[in-house]
Write a protein that binds this DNA or RNA. Structure first.
Lengths: 194, 194
DNA sequence: TTGAATGTCTAGCACTGCTAGAATTCGAGC
DNA sequence: GCTCGAATTCTAGCAGTGCTAGACATTCAA
């Protein structure tokens, strides 16, 4: 049944094409520009084809977001692994997080701001989500001090996310973003900690 | 020219009616349900009337957001004024912020998540925005320690915002939201501070 | 009472996500 | 190699969106 396999391969390829095209369109023109018609035109198929791969627009956003979580996990792990340990690892990881958001704004939106239908703190949470969170836990958990590591990392993550979204939405002056990040790290992992 | 005055009064009343209706519709059915048609039907006028008051949907969101900033400023001031000073004032203020967001989710979205066209860190920033931020500065600035008060308050605010949005979006388990808030306050204003 | 200005509405444009059913393509069996 | 049936893809359309041009009504001043 090689024919069946070939068809499945082609189908998988088209699946990836849709996700990649949606992502590129979102990154260059914003998620508002990612309409089913435009997307269909770009992949050179009609709209209904999209619905044979995804339940609807939201699920496409979710697929892009999933890619994002995998890449974010990589970026965080790379930052933590790149050398420094202890407090410096936290600084590097936080910096990598903010950089990731700055470099992939639309991707970040798909992951955290838009409704992507992905289950988060849930049994069904996809592996890439868990891995991205784990990549945050590793350098941070040791500094939780009296607090529970889980809560500590969640709170730190939320703070990072707040900085990212408010800065990018123009709610905070962009000029001193680095200083705010340094301040945040300093409050969660004070100088002098090992 | 009493006729002119009456007309202006009526017009102002209708303006308020639009904002109030949009807010109520958003709070009960979400911002997606706030369409120009539905809004027009509720206020018992045709859609074009909306455009004689606002440039477009975005400006209506902005008007609702502006109400929100005034109310947030009130809520924060009330919390800080309600008794405690020093560290307790920070706890009370942070709690009031989170409560405000939980009690008025759609309003909070209009203020911080949706595109409302309001200028933030800008010369033209409307007074209610400034006042809300000032209400955060007052109890917090004293604890900035070596950091600049402005940066300190901005970062704390961002952290609060991150907690609020991630919790409400289901990205963080809702159960331990209070613990995360306590942890955050503890990191920014450690126990033993005066 | 008329004229003009102000106000409001009807109707419509170009777009959205999504889908029913027609049309086509393609591989399996003869 | 040819035909038939199934899988796939497309055309066409629905009900909804934000927004607006131009027709219509109302209201006030002369």
């Amino acid at each position: 049944m090689s024919v069946r396999e070939r068809k499945e391969r082609e189908r998988a390829g088209r699946h990836r094409l849709i996700v990649a095209t949606a992502r590129e369109l979102a990154e260059t023109q914003g998620w508002d520009a990612v309409t089913t018609r435009r997307l269909a035109e770009r992949i050179e198929y009609s709209q209904p084809v999209l619905y044979s791969h995804f339940r609807g627009r939201k699920e496409i956003v979710g697929a892009v977001a999933l890619e994002g979580f995998a890449e974010l996990a990589d970026a965080l792990r790379a930052a933590a692994r790149s050398g420094p340990a202890g407090r410096d690892a936290v600084t590097a990881t936080a910096g990598a997080y903010v950089d990731f958001a700055a470099r992939n704004p639309a991707l970040y939106d798909a992951m955290f701001s838009l409704d992507n239908g992905l289950p988060f703190a849930d049994d069904a949470t996809p592996a890439p989500l868990r891995e991205a969170f784990e990549a945050l836990v590793e350098p941070l958990a040791g500094h939780a001090q009296p607090a529970e590591p889980g809560l500590f990392v969640e709170t730190f993550w939320a703070a990072l996310h707040g900085l990212v979204t408010l800065t990018r939405g123009g709610r905070l002056p962009a000029g001193r973003a680095d200083d705010r990040l340094a301040l945040l790290v300093d409050r969660f992992v004070p100088h002098g900690a090992r």
